[in-house]
Structure formats: structure tokens, C-alpha cells
């Protein structure tokens, strides 16, 4: 039943989102008039070549209105973004619930494991749809936005994706992409699942072996400080795998939808690094240890 109600909830939210988008357009056409007025006033001032008190007052009034308009439009857009976030979290909840119940949401007959190629596509999609953080003027990006780490007391929620340092069968330590199952506050340990269903292993790991993945993309145009900078050492998900490896930032993204370009440590290449490869913001985290293994 819970699944059904989530469906109707999502339908409602989509409806609201639709309304909000329509409102945005209304707001936009309303402020258009005022902006035009500002432009005309400036032109007139230019031709008269002097700034009379009349114009000054007029302009001040116009700008105040324009600012109010912009803020109104902005708040509607934020509300729309909130709706999207809400829908996504509902979908996520449903996915987790289904996972727990062992029910597959798909109508297709369940497969034992997802084909790896499909898993890779899903990972790419999740990176692409990671929301972009848009702060209010003067607001600085929060933890878990881009390169900004989580607070020391942060506890990742169930279903969150993390980089987890696990001991492989051969004894080697490896950072893998995992999903949080639970956190035990008394032992301070996480239970995580390997994202790769072929592994299908559950690990119990201490806090320091877990690095939560960013929950927002940082906008290089407005918040460049929230991105890793060139030559910084990071852990990045190797393309088409579910493992994080040490890498140097080659170039940070230039636009919100861009990926990092990174150089993976790779001894099979003469200079010890792979050629530049693209990794999305979602899968690049700070590398804690600076010493090489």
C-alpha cells in the first residue's frame, strides 16, 4: 500500500511542479516590462547627458521593483527545485523500501543481478542528475557540496552512496562505491552494501573508512572554491568501474555540467599516470591519506 500512496504523492508533486513552472513564466513576462523601462531610462539619460534628481529617484524605484520581481521569480524556482528534490527523495525511499522487501519495482521479471553495463549507465545517470547547489547571494556552499567535506559528526543516511574502504579477499585495501544500509550509534560503525551486485557483499566498517559522496554539484561559475583545484590529490571513481583510485586533478570543470578531468595513478604508464579521463563531480572525493601506499 505504501508504494501506491507514494505513487499518488509523486503524481501530486509533479502536478505542483508543473504549476510552478507555469508561474515562473508569468513572473518572467511581468518583470520584462520593468526591465525594459530601466533600459529606456538609461538611454534617455545618456542622450541628455546628465543625471537629474528626477532620473535618480525614478531609477531607484524601478530597480527596487526589478529586485523584488527577481526575488519572486527566484523563490518560485527554488520551490520548483524543492519539489524535484522531494520527488527524488520519494523515489529513493521507494527504491530502498523495495530493496528491503526484495521486491523489484520493475514489471520485468527480476534478474538475479543487474547487467554491469546497465549498472554503469545508472551510475552515470545518477551523476548527471545530482542537483546543482544554488545559494542565495552571499551564502557559501554547505558541506557535501562539491569538494566541501561533511562535518566531522555527520552521519550518512540509509541509501546514501559512499566511498568505502574495504578489505578485499586478497587482503588488499580498496575504496569501493557502496550504499549505506545502517549506522550503529553505539559502535559508531556503518553497514554498507557493495554497489556492484555481483559482489553482493555487506561490510561493517568504522566511520573513518567511509567518505560520503557529494550531494550537490558545485557551480564553477559561482562557487569555484567548492571544487578541487588542479594537481590536488583525490579519490576518483575509475570510469566504467565501481572502485575509487588515487588521482590528480588535471582540470576542474568549467561549467556546471562538466566533469573533472583527472590523471589516475597507474604504474603501467611510463610517467606513472593514466592519460586524462573524465569523472563526474559526484564521484570525486578528497583523499585522506597523503602518503602513498
Amino acid at each position: 500500500m505504501a508504494l501506491v500512496s507514494a505513487d499518488t504523492k509523486i503524481a501530486e508533486l509533479l502536478n505542483e511542479l508543473h504549476q510552478l513552472i507555469k508561474q515562473t513564466q508569468e513572473e518572467r513576462s511581468r518583470s520584462e516590462h520593468n526591465l525594459l523601462n530601466i533600459q529606456k531610462t538609461h538611454e534617455r539619460m545618456q542622450t541628455e547627458n546628465k543625471t537629474s534628481p528626477y532620473y535618480r529617484t525614478k531609477l531607484r524605484g524601478l530597480y527596487t521593483t526589478a529586485k523584488a520581481d527577481a526575488e519572486a521569480e527566484c523563490s518560485i524556482l527554488r520551490r520548483a527545485l524543492d519539489k524535484i528534490a522531494e520527488i527524488k527523495s520519494l523515489l529513493e525511499e521507494r527504491r530502498i523500501a523495495a530493496r528491503m522487501a526484495g521486491v523489484y519495482s520493475d514489471t520485468d521479471p527480476p534478474r538475479k543481478t543487474m547487467r554491469r553495463g546497465v549498472l554503469m549507465t545508472l551510475l552515470q545517470q545518477s551523476a548527471m542528475t545530482l542537483p546543482l547547489w544554488i545559494g542565495k547571494p552571499g551564502e557559501s556552499p554547505p558541506p557535501l557540496c562539491g569538494a566541501i567535506p561533511a562535518n566531522s559528526d555527520y552521519v550518512a543516511k540509509q541509501g546514501d552512496k559512499v566511498a568505502a574502504r574495504v578489505k578485499a579477499v586478497d587482503g588488499d585495501e580498496q575504496w569501493i562505491l557502496a550504499e549505506v544500509v545502517s549506522y550503529n550509534h553505539s559502535t559508531n560503525k556503518y553497514e554498507v552494501d557493495d554497489i556492484d551486485e555481483e559482489g553482493k557483499e555487506r561490510h561493517t566498517l568504522s566511520r573513518r573508512r567511509i567518505i560520503p559522496l557529494p550531494q550537490w554539484k558545485a557551480n564553477p561559475e559561482t562557487d569555484p572554491e567548492a571544487l578541487f583545484s588542479k594537481d590536488q590529490l583525490v579519490l576518483a571513481l575509475y570510469p566504467q568501474t565501481t572502485c575509487f583510485y588515487r588521482a590528480l586533478i588535471h582540470t576542474p570543470p568549467h561549467r556546471p555540467q562538466d566533469d573533472y578531468s583527472v590523471l589516475f595513478e597507474d604504474t603501467s604508464y611510463a610517467d606513472g599516470y593514466s592519460p586524462p579521463l573524465n569523472v563526474a563531480q559526484r564521484y570525486v572525493v578528497a583523499c585522506k591519506e597523503n602518503k602513498k601506499k
Binding site: D106, D108, M114, R115, G117, V118, T121, L122, Q125
Partner: peptide
């Protein structure tokens, strides 16, 4: 654009 979980291996 999302390929179904059952998409053929060589579809993409």
C-alpha cells in the same frame, strides 16, 4: 534514454 535493466548487452 534510460535503458531498461533488460536491455541487450550490445544495444548501446
Amino acid at each position: 534514454s534510460l535503458l531498461s535493466a533488460n536491455a541487450a548487452r550490445d544495444e548501446t
